[in-house]
């Protein structure tokens, strides 16, 4: 086992642990915040940064193969899909919650947004 492989393994393990810490923060934020729009902030952080760090660590562990290319594709896809789903969920919340004004300032016209 060469030194390069050992260095790659160590960096990969560190990155996976870092991603796990980000996930831990995500869970803490999910239980700590009271309102859904605050909670969504923590969830979006875990979806993008946590998964990126974790999969980067996995790619370093397994080396440059076709599998690691597919894992990179997963990261790319989730970076597009996670903000989109967050936008959809917040739109659903603003449209359906009657008391959203108590938690946040909403400046859009509700009726217009629904149509």
């Amino acid at each position: 086992m060469s030194t390069l492989e050992i260095v790659c393994d160590v960096i990969g393990i560190l990155l996976i642990i870092l991603g796990l810490i980000i996930y831990l923060f995500q869970i803490i934020g999910l239980f700590k915040y009271k309102y859904i729009l605050n909670r969504m902030h923590a969830a979006g952080m875990g979806d993008t940064l946590g998964l990126f760090l974790g999969l980067l660590g996995i790619i370093l562990l397994c080396g440059l193969t076709f599998t690691s290319l597919k894992l990179g594709l997963v990261v790319l896809f989730l970076w597009f899909s996670s903000p989109t789903s967050s936008h959809l969920i917040s739109k659903l919340e603003v449209c359906t919650n009657e008391e959203v004004g108590e938690h946040a300032e909403i400046q859009i016209d509700k009726e217009e947004d629904m149509q």
Binding site: Q26, L30, I36, R39, D47, L78, S85, L92, E93, T96
Partner: peptide
């Protein structure tokens, strides 16, 4: 509310 549940389902997927 239903939006909390959807956020959690999304997170479980990740």
């Amino acid at each position: 509310r239903v939006t909390d549940r959807i956020v959690c389902v999304n997170m479980i997927g990740t």
